[in-house]
Design a protein around this nucleic acid. Structure first.
Length: 309
DNA sequence: AATTCGCCCTGTCGGC
DNA sequence: TGCCGACAGGGCGAAT
């Protein structure tokens, strides 16, 4: 028996495509059809290109759909002939949770499950809760983000192409045709590293630090390899690996080290399936070699020097 | 033109 | 034990 085991809980990096998709699915089930009663902005600093009054003016709008583009959530709102999109980026620690009624348990319940903190239920309103939308049904949608890297924008539904953040995004990386990934990587990647290309949201959107490293491990390619130095066949493998790790992330309802929760406050389980992210210095599950850690493309990067070439 | 840097922000952790 | 600096990190604008 081991005496005392120190478990390190890394802070979740930015929610990436699978995490945002998990929130989208949760909100789609619960939020569509709800009519906004009032919106309280508790921290105006999270707003971008819109004012507190604009959000307060959403009273009477009905939620018609929840869409996602890369790591952005788009909450579609309609009132008579008007249509708006509430655009939400979760930053690093953002949580967008739904509460059916205010009598429901109002505190997050955390417990340890397989070495990680498991979160259940919407968090109570605290100093990190920056926006609370209350619906006519009594339900609430809350945006909570301790590190405040998240952003909320409100745009006219028809102005999506004029929103610089959205206009910059390339196609969605999830469910993209592997041949399309390959073609665009080669066209737009120049002489950059695989890691830099995977993280570049204007080439394909949705992949962040976790899934970039996991895809490289899956494809047995070093993240610092220059893409143009890879054979055509190996780029094909990488393209399939990206699809695979994103699929798995979505199936597992996202990666939760600490902060990430879905719309109902539930943690994901993908952290249990990670092969390299957060494992620098530990042993490779595939070959037993020591996993290396270094900064590549300005991000902490982990790879196996033995089986990734 | 392509790439890098500094900033935003706060909880957590290691060192003293 | 407690204080404090270092660190983490996506996206954006400025600088190189």
């Amino acid at each position: 028996m081991v005496g005392k085991v120190t478990v390190v809980y890394p802070v979740d990096p930015m929610p990436e495509l699978p995490e945002v998709e998990t929130v989208r699915r949760g909100l789609e089930v619960r939020l569509v059809g709800e009519v906004v009663g009032s919106v309280e902005v508790r921290q105006p600093g999270i707003l971008e290109a819109c004012q507190v009054q604009d959000l307060q003016g959403l009273a009477g709008f009905r939620v018609s759909a929840i869409d996602r583009r890369a790591k952005y959530l788009l909450i579609r709102l309609e009132r008579e002939a008007e249509a708006r999109s509430l655009v939400v980026h979760l930053g690093m620690t953002g949580q967008l949770t739904y509460q059916a009624d205010q009598e429901e348990a109002t505190d997050t319940f955390r417990r340890l499950v397989s070495g990680y903190q498991k979160s259940v239920g919407a968090h109570k309103i605290d100093s990190h809760t920056h926006l609370v939308a209350t619906f006519l049904s009594g339900a609430r949608l809350m945006f909570r983000d301790p590190r405040r890297f998240g952003r909320i924008l409100l745009i006219q539904a028809c102005e999506e192409d004029d929103c610089p953040r959205l206009a910059r995004l390339g196609p969605d990386a999830w469910k993209a045709d592997p041949l399309a990934l390959k073609r665009r990587w080669i066209e737009r990647g120049g002489k950059r590293t695989v890691k830099a290309i995977l993280l570049d949201q204007s080439i394909f959107g949705g992949v962040g630090n976790i899934y970039a490293d996991e895809a490289c491990f899956e494809a047995r390619i070093r993240p610092q390899r220059i893409l143009s130095s890879l054979s055509s066949a190996r780029i094909d493998v990488l393209a399939k690996a990206v699809g695979l790790v994103l699929d798995k992330g979505v199936q597992n309802a996202g990666t939760s080290f600490r902060d990430f929760v879905g719309a109902d406050g539930e943690s994901g389980t993908n952290q249990e399936d990670l092969r390299v992210y957060g494992r620098g210095g530990q042993l490779c599950f595939r070959c037993g070699g020591v996993l290396h850690k270094a900064v590549v493309a300005q991000r902490t990067t982990v790879w196996c020097a033995k089986c990734q070439t």
